[in-house]
Design a protein around this nucleic acid. Sequence first.
DNA 1: CGGGTAGTACTACGTCGTGTAGAGGCCCAT
DNA 2: ATGGGCCTCTACACGACGTAGTACTACCCG
Lengths: 118, 118
Amino acid sequence: MKGLGELERSIMDILWAQDAPLTAREVGRLIADRDLAPTTVMTVLDRLTRKGFLTRTRDGRAWRYEPGASRDAYVAELMLEALDMTGDRSAALTRFAQTVSGSEADILRKALTELEEE
Amino acid sequence: MKGLGELERSIMDILWAQDAPLTAREVGRLIADRDLAPTTVMTVLDRLTRKGFLTRTRDGRAWRYEPGASRDAYVAELMLEALDMTGDRSAALTRFAQTVSGSEADILRKALTELEEE
DNA sequence: CGGGTAGTACTACGTCGTGTAGAGGCCCAT
DNA sequence: ATGGGCCTCTACACGACGTAGTACTACCCG
């Protein structure tokens, strides 16, 4: 996978926050604070699609864009990718567990416990 | 923090694998498979230093370079950074725990248990 | 039916990070 | 004093990303 740029991430955030697929125009409206040209939004949506982050389906003349994976899945994948970078995954994981805040450690514990029960 | 490029990472890998600080020349020798000009290695070492990944100390005319943090710490930080990208850290963490392989889940469990005991 | 409108595809350009390296300067050993 | 080793500075190409213009098409309104 590859990281996302600033604008790309903003747009992904918008789409991740939505349940229904959006058109470029709609995304542009939701990102109005940045006052971007409509073509800019389209270009970025296009690039995101080509990179595999979005799926698009026709709706009349327009395309509707939709994330291919949830943000959580994306974040988890990024974390795994970071993990892949080390020779010693065990050490890195341990380190990670130690670095995470207490409440987050709880969340991890819970998730891991539930896993075990299956 | 910021991600590293391909060559930057190779060089960090070399330095992380070493216990003693190395000079540019020594790094260049260890990365011989790529047949780089000595100045290339120096430039990259310099950039890594400026980015805070390396510390350097004088040794005669030469500099000796040394990682500022362990690779594990770096990886853990990257993982946390990915985690920061989401609105719902809990969901992402849960997802991560579920995605990790079985043996890695064990490692996490162990680290978290030890944490708890302190 | 003709033009505005919305939407698309294609192309473009500036900037920044990174890989890569040359030019020139300084110092020590021979 | 001379040459090799090491440094600093500068440079350049390339790809990713932010940003946007242009040109083409299909449709609705009057």
